[in-house]
């Protein structure tokens, strides 16, 4: 059987909220190392990779690997029933048809029990090459969300270009064009707002803003986001889960998006 308790149900709620509009059904693979989900959107343009290590759980028991086929919008509906400071316990039998979800308030005076029906999902998985990226930009997740939102006003494709000086987001559409440049900041009052760029050579790629917009739904998870790019490969937009700022969290939520290319 599988049984795991997270002290903060809100963390799981934010994770599922962040992916449920991009991916409807997904298999959560549970093993002794933790919980993992890899799923693509219906057009196979983007991919979500969620890793929750056992470290982030208060209690984690997994006797045998289990695949939990989950309808994510329905899971999100149940997670919305948790209180702000509730813990959450997930339980499943080896060949069970349901996932039990139990919320407990801090003082344990309120206990809510739910069951979510599991599904058989025929999910296609892809092997993501373990590669070093040419460019890694770390910035405020709220700032990234704002830029993506602002770019969407003007068009549907955003160019992201990075040099040592800064990272430039550009868009053009029927009503005109725009761009926003963030300079690398050495000293800022608020550490969370710093822009740091590690790069080998300048890179510029084009991406569909619709998908970048989906990814920024993960902003409540972490004040920082890491954007990784290399020429002619999918971009990675990654958030730590259950960690602080730039430090390695006990988990991660990464989004991959295939670039747009000139025809």
């Amino acid at each position: 059987m599988f049984e795991a308790t997270l002290q903060k149900a809100s963390t799981l709620k934010k994770v599922i909220e962040a992916i449920k509009d991009l991916v409807t059904d997904g298999n959560i693979e549970v093993s002794e190392t933790g919980m993992n989900l890899q799923a693509m959107d219906s057009s196979h343009v983007s991919l979500v990779s969620l890793v929750l290590h056992t470290d982030m759980f208060e209690h984690f028991r997994c006797d045998r690997n289990v695949t939990l086929g989950i309808n994510l919008p329905n899971f999100a509906k149940i997670l919305k029933c948790s209180g702000n400071d509730d813990s959450v316990t997930l339980k499943a039998q080896d060949d069970g048809e349901n996932l039990a979800i139990v919320f407990e308030s801090e003082g344990q005076e309120r206990v809510s029990e739910f069951e979510l029906k599991l599904m058989d999902i025929d999910a296609e998985s892809l092997g993501i090459p373990d590669q070093d990226y040419n460019t890694n930009v770390k910035m405020s997740s709220a700032e990234f969300q704002r830029i993506v939102r602002d770019m969407t006003v003007l068009g549907d494709t955003c160019s992201i270009g990075c040099t040592k000086e800064g990272v430039k987001f550009s868009v053009s559409g029927d009503l005109g064009q725009g761009n926003i440049t963030l300079r690398q900041t050495n000293s800022v009052d608020k550490e969370e707002e710093a822009v740091t760029i590690e790069m080998d050579e300048p890179v510029e790629l084009n991406f569909a803003l619709r998908y970048l917009g989906f990814f920024t739904k993960a902003s409540p998870l972490c004040p920082r986001v890491t954007i990784s790019m290399s020429p002619d490969v999918p971009i990675v937009v990654a958030y730590n889960v259950g960690g602080e700022k730039d430090t390695e969290g006990a988990g991660s939520l990464s989004f991959y998006l295939a670039p747009k290319i000139d025809e």
Binding site: H44, L126, G127, A258, E263
Partner: peptide
């Protein structure tokens, strides 16, 4: 115009 690529062109099926 720009063409959207898919992930299958970059990531392999295991």
């Amino acid at each position: 115009s720009m063409k959207q690529t898919t992930l299958a062109s970059f990531f392999k099926k295991p």
